[in-house]
Nucleic acid binder design. Structure first.
Length: 593
RNA sequence: GGGGUCGUGGUGCAGCCUGGUUAGCACACUGGACUGUCAAUCCAGAGGUCGCGGGUUCAAAUCCCGUCGACCCCGCCA
């Protein structure tokens, strides 16, 4: 190092020099971002993590430095020594924080050269993501990419500071663990020492954090990697990071404010945003009824209306039958949507069908009456309908009749599309809410059994405990989701801490006692040794960072993300392995089918 | 597993629908000129298996089939 640097020491970063530094002799190190060669005079914008500083190479100052600067190309690594001087009047650059000054370079050292780059680092340059990821180490030199990781770092620090202040212990849990049934597909790791046996990478530290509570740690958190072998999306990676939290002796209403405090701290420190507390709370049923979603976006209105009663005895047989069969008719008013073309309406109908609806009734409210494929059935209901939906001329009404919650969820999906199309979504705004009282279980038609909505360790609400025997589908869980701008940002629950209840839950889910013992025996046993009441939450760190960074995809806030097929363009993982490695593991690959 | 968009010098795109000049433009790159630029400017130049394979045709970047890859969506993600 010393040899290369020749005793030079960096005195300042490229982001900090101001008019107050004029006259000082400084040493800067960084990358040549841009070079402007005027023949007699050469300008180089030197870039490091903190910013840009213009360096001037004048033969009158140093002929040697000037001639070396002629060889400088993009992304050469440079060390410069020189004097900070005020730029000549009229040549200041207001776009740069350092734009009032420049370095009159007396000595230049090229620390390393660079080949021409495979893509430009200019901010405005659009580059294919696959190319960016293959050369991610170059991509991150772009200030707008770096910025996302600064935000990520600050969020993590705010989380740690806050939780430590609240008495939480940061504890690590194993990555090599055992496969859990249910949930996502596991990533498996073959064991060499126990041939034929496999570890699984954790989908979350769920069981371990409960064991930490049995262990008396009382308040635990971890910023931890989780692994799920499922298909990817712009907000889903095979490995992602959670802020994982668990507490003892707290009921839901004592725990949620702790999480609110964490979010307040993060948004305040990182975004300068004041989130009002307490966060609004919506029961699951209410969220579905009003917004057609269990993760409602509260940044805009477009609430759904309950219209079932209007159709009980109506001439519109289709809906009357739906209501008679215990279903519901839900309505959505699209303000000013009366001008939509036939094609746009057809697209809405298509979208409704692909969301699972049998159909979609649209109604244009014209000054002279209703216009709709079923207008003649609706005309008698006109006043009731317009009143219920608060609709007037120029509006479009969308109606779906089906079983709940499907009817509402179909409109909930259209609600999002329409908000986008009508640009009702305010930018730079954050609306946070809790969704509570989720159903404990839901009936799985294909498996012919009850499935846990959250996970099998989630406690039912105390008053709903008897329902486990009589009407499991109506039992509500002590589960909660934190929703920000229509995205699930965190989810958690109060856990079952009594073995008898846990066994009852397994039974309900069709997990036989011996099967439960085989899979979760260690947890069941732990619950028998004085497990405290406990509950917690897991927040998706990547999504939180993306939200605060204003990025669509979490790939933008992960240093080395995977493509949609789960590959890494930089390392070419996953890759075949040496046959000897497979032999050690006792693994033979099956022939291709 | 299914649907959609895209794939053309290093990068970003046009050309494709309606097959036929030497595949065009911008940026980057190379050489030259230039002492106040900051997306420097001006002059000159080099750089292409049109993702891959097959088919149709006198002729394919262009039409057809297959395949691979990237992205978006549905399913999936307790």
């Amino acid at each position: 190092m010393t040899a290369t640097l020749g005793g030079w020491r960096r005195s300042h970063t490229c982001g900090e020099l101001r008019a107050a530094h004029v006259g000082q002799t400084v040493t800067l190190m960084g990358w040549a971002f841009r070079r402007r060669d005027h023949g007699g005079l050469i300008f180089v914008d030197l870039r490091d993590r903190e910013g840009l500083t213009q360096c001037v190479f004048n033969p009158a100052t140093s002929g040697e430095a000037h001639s070396t600067a002629q060889d400088v190309r993009s992304e050469f690594v440079l060390a410069v020594q020189g004097t900070v001087q005020r730029r000549p009047p009229g040549t200041e650059n207001p776009k740069l924080p350092t734009g009032d000054v420049e370095i009159q370079v007396s000595r230049l050292k090229i620390l390393n050269e660079s080949k021409p780059l495979p893509f430009p680092l200019e901010e405005e340059a659009a580059v294919d993501e696959a190319v960016r990821l293959k050369y991610r180490y170059l991509d991150m030199r772009r200030p707008q990419v770096l910025r996302n990781f600064v935000i990520r770092d600050r969020i993590c620090r705010a989380v740690r500071d806050y939780l430590h202040g609240q008495g939480f212990l940061e504890v690590e849990t194993p990555f090599l663990t055992r496969s859990t049934p249910e949930g996502a597909r596991d990533f498996l790791v073959p064991s060499r020492l126990s041939r034929g046996h496999f570890y699984a990478l954790p989908q979350s530290p769920q069981l371990f954090k409960q064991l930490l509570m049995v262990g008396g740690f009382e308040r635990y958190f971890q910023i931890v990697r989780c692994f799920r072998d499922e298909d990817l999306r712009k907000d889903r990676q095979p490995e992602f990071t959670q802020i994982d939290i668990e507490t003892s002796f707290l009921d839901r209403d004592e725990f949620l404010p702790i999480v609110e405090g964490m979010l307040v701290e993060v948004f305040k420190r990182v975004g300068g945003i004041d989130l009002p507390v307490p966060f609004p709370r919506l029961a699951y049923d209410e969220a579905i009824a009003r917004f057609g979603s269990d993760k409602p976006d509260l940044r805009y209105g477009l609430e759904l209306s309950e219209c079932s009663d209007l159709f009980t005895a109506a001439p519109f047989q289709t809906f009357a039958q739906v209501v008679a069969a215990g279903g519901a008719v839900k309505g959505l008013r699209v303000p000013g949507g009366g001008g939509m073309s036939r094609k746009e309406l057809d697209d809405l109908v298509e979208a409704a069908k692909s969301a699972g609806a049998k159909g979609l009734v649209w109604v244009k409210v014209n000054p002279d009456g209703l216009q709709s494929p079923v207008a003649r059935f609706l005309e008698p209901l006109k006043l009731g309908l317009l009143g219920r939906l608060a609709a007037g001329p120029g509006d479009l009404l969308l109606l779906v009749g089906d079983q709940m919650p499907l009817a509402a969820m179909v409109l909930g999906r259209l609600r999002q599309d329409i908000a986008q199309r009508l640009t009702l979504v305010p930018p730079q705004e954050f609306r946070v809410c809790w969704v509570l009282d989720f159903p404990l279980v839901e009936w799985s038609e294909e498996e012919r059994r009850w499935d846990a909505v959250h996970h099998p360790f989630t406690a039912p609400r105390d008053e709903d405990l008897p329902l486990l025997d009589t009407d499991p589908g109506s039992a509500r869980a002590k589960a909660y989701d934190l929703v920000i701008n229509g995205q699930e940002a965190a989810g958690g629950s109060i856990r079952i801490h009594q073995p008898a209840v846990q066994e009852k839950m397994f039974k309900l889910l069709g997990i036989a006692p011996q099967e439960a013992r085989a899979r979760f025996g260690f947890l069941l046993e732990a619950l028998e040794f004085g497990a405290p009441p406990m509950g917690g939450i897991a927040a998706g760190l990547d999504r939180l960072v993306a939200l605060l960074a204003g990025e669509e995809s979490i790939r933008e806030v992960i240093a080395f993300p995977k493509t949609q097929k789960g590959t890494c363009p930089l390392t070419d993982a996953p890759a075949p392995v040496d046959p000897g490695q497979l032999k050690d593991l006792g693994i033979r690959l099956a022939e291709e089918p």
